[in-house]
């Protein structure tokens, strides 16, 4: 009997967590189709007015374009960095390997605002701030650890003999990398690309500090909210949410399905 009650209690608990996480987003989604200017209940009529409005706003378009450039470049750069570090860890043993890994995994633990200020100070000192690629650099530094963690996990599932088998069959180190390591890691590499793109697409603080006049989507959202209460923010919010959610879900699906496969 207690087991049953415990199960119910746990189910309620999980339900509450999901409600807390997703309710604000769902409300945002609902109000983005609401004709009324203020988010109140009862709702007004169904309307795509706010979507039309952002669709016709050139600032939003520029921001979306910027965000896409930044997030896709970041994804590629961070994933390449992450792959190289993960491979180093997989393949080599060296002194100070522990500190090396700890340093690599450090960036996500630094408070964003500190990171943003430090990035601004550093990039402007070497004359690299205020550019679109300033954001790309900063985001790559921030997201490479995620890429590394995902790819490292995949490499740990690999039979270390596989690479040696490729050498043994006449492949040099590059051929082994291209024909064995990369194909084996492919699902993790795609996951890393999706995840780093999603993180970069959403990131506000660092982008705001180092971007200069190049606004990304989160910065435009802040500007809309700062000006006045404007329901277009719900529309943009929904768009951003769907974009990054799709990327994250895609990353998860690819990674999880491959893990299940490799264990079956």
């Amino acid at each position: 009997m207690t087991g049953r009650w415990l199960n119910i209690a746990l189910a309620v608990y999980v339900g509450l967590i999901f409600t807390f996480v997703f309710a604000p987003i769902i409300f945002s989604l609902i109000f983005s189709f609401n004709s009324q200017r203020f988010p109140t209940i009862p709702l007004g009529e169904f309307s795509t007015e706010w979507y039309v409005k952002i669709f016709n706003d050139p600032d939003v378009w520029t921001a979306v374009r910027n965000s896409l450039i930044v997030s896709s470049s970041t994804a590629v750069l961070a994933t390449v960095l992450g792959f190289c570090t993960a491979y180093t860890d997989f393949r080599y043993n060296f002194r100070f390997k522990g500190p090396y890994l700890a340093l690599i995994l450090l960036p996500p633990t630094i408070p964003l605002i500190i990171m943003a200020l430090a990035m601004l100070a550093w990039l402007s000192r070497i004359g690299m701030s205020g550019q679109l690629w300033s954001i790309i650099l900063a985001h790559s530094v921030m997201t490479a650890p995620f890429a590394m963690a995902i790819i490292r996990l995949r490499l740990h599932q690999m039979d270390p003999d596989l690479e040696a088998a490729a050498w043994n069959l006449g492949g040099n180190e590059w051929q082994a990398m291209r024909h064995v390591i990369v194909p084996f890691c492919a699902p993790a590499i795609v996951s890393a690309l999706c995840l780093t793109a999603a993180v970069s697409f959403d990131e506000f603080a660092v982008a705001w500090f180092v971007s200069g006049l190049n606004k990304t989507v989160p910065i435009v959202i802040l500007e809309i909210v700062q000006g006045n209460i404007d329901p277009t923010v719900n529309a943009i919010g929904t768009f951003v949410f769907l974009t990054s959610m799709s990327l994250v879900i895609l990353a998860q699906l690819l990674f999880i399905s491959r893990q299940i496969k490799s264990h079956s």
């Binding site: 039979d159 003999d161 596989l162 040696a164 088998a165 490729a166 050498w167 043994n168 069959l169 006449g170 492949g171 040099n172 051929q175 064995v180 194909p183 084996f184």
Partner: peptide, 15 residues
């Protein structure tokens, strides 16, 4: 990779 000594692995190491 410069040798002609293929190995059958204990783990088989099939790709």
């Amino acid at each position: 990779h410069e040798r002609d000594t293929p190995l059958v692995w204990q783990s088989l190491a099939l790709f």
